[in-house]
């Protein structure tokens, strides 16, 4: 207990730092995956290509991406930007599939009806297809959020401080409590972000409470990210 009492400031500082490092890639990843997912959904020829490239992104271990981005982009090895970019890449990789699946899950009769009522292509996307893809996209975004929070910890190996620092430092100094504190805080942050997303979903998609979640949504809810 001593360690915790003496290091409350450190834990707080690292937690805030952790949140900051996690939120930006989640937001960026979501924003970037929208046009990419839309392209993959809209044009059959681009679908195979986009989803294949994204499948390949998955196979890069995050640690490898952390260490390889600096020389590739010419940024500092210890730069936070490095971790932000790497995590954004993963967020896009995870999220694009959800965007594509969400758009594909919009019923054809709704689409026909919207066109017949005189929505322009642009208007139909934002007013009809995008909101209706919402539940599937939200399920995907929740996975992205939780996995990003987890992955931030790996940044410690390239010197980017986060709660991951408590893991390596705890192991070196042999303090179990330090590592456990890191785990608990990581989980708490993940669950808090998840809660924020769920609440946002409730507010933005009030109709959603009336349905049982679709098969796609349920599948995403049970998926689990690594790290």
């Amino acid at each position: 207990m001593n360690w915790l009492v003496n290091n409350l400031d450190l834990v707080l500082e690292l937690s805030l730092q952790h949140v900051r490092l996690a939120v930006l890639p989640i937001v960026l990843g979501f924003a970037l995956s929208l046009p990419i997912g839309w392209l993959a959904w809209r044009f059959r020829f681009s679908r195979g290509l986009v989803l294949t490239v994204i499948g390949l992104l998955y196979t890069i271990p995050s640690l490898a991406l952390f260490v390889l981005l600096p020389p590739a982009l010419g940024i500092s090895f210890l730069s936070e930007l490095n971790v932000t970019i790497a995590l954004t890449v993963y967020a896009v990789a995870l999220m694009t599939r959800s965007v594509t699946e969400g758009l594909a899950a919009v019923g054809p009769s709704v689409r026909v009806a919207a066109t017949a009522m005189g929505y322009s292509t642009w208007g139909r996307f934002w007013r009809v297809e995008f909101p209706l893809a919402g539940p599937v996209m939200l399920a995907g975004l929740r996975v992205v959020a939780v996995s990003t929070v987890s992955l931030v910890t790996v940044g410690v190996f390239v010197g980017v401080r986060s709660l991951g620092y408590l893991f390596t430092d705890g192991l070196q100094r042999g303090i179990v409590l330090e590592i456990v504190t890191g785990i608990v805080m990581t989980v708490v942050i993940a669950l808090l972000l998840d809660l924020v997303l769920v609440v946002l979903g409730r507010i933005l998609m009030p109709w959603q409470r009336l349905f049982a979640p679709s098969a796609t949504v349920r599948r995403l809810q049970t998926a689990r990210p690594a790290a």
Binding site: G107, S109, A113, A114, G134, W207
Partner: peptide, 13 residues
């Protein structure tokens, strides 16, 4: 325009 299965927008009242 009216279609089978109504084509109502499920996210709107």
């Amino acid at each position: 325009y009216v279609i089978q299965n109504s084509g109502l927008l499920p996210h709107r009242t």
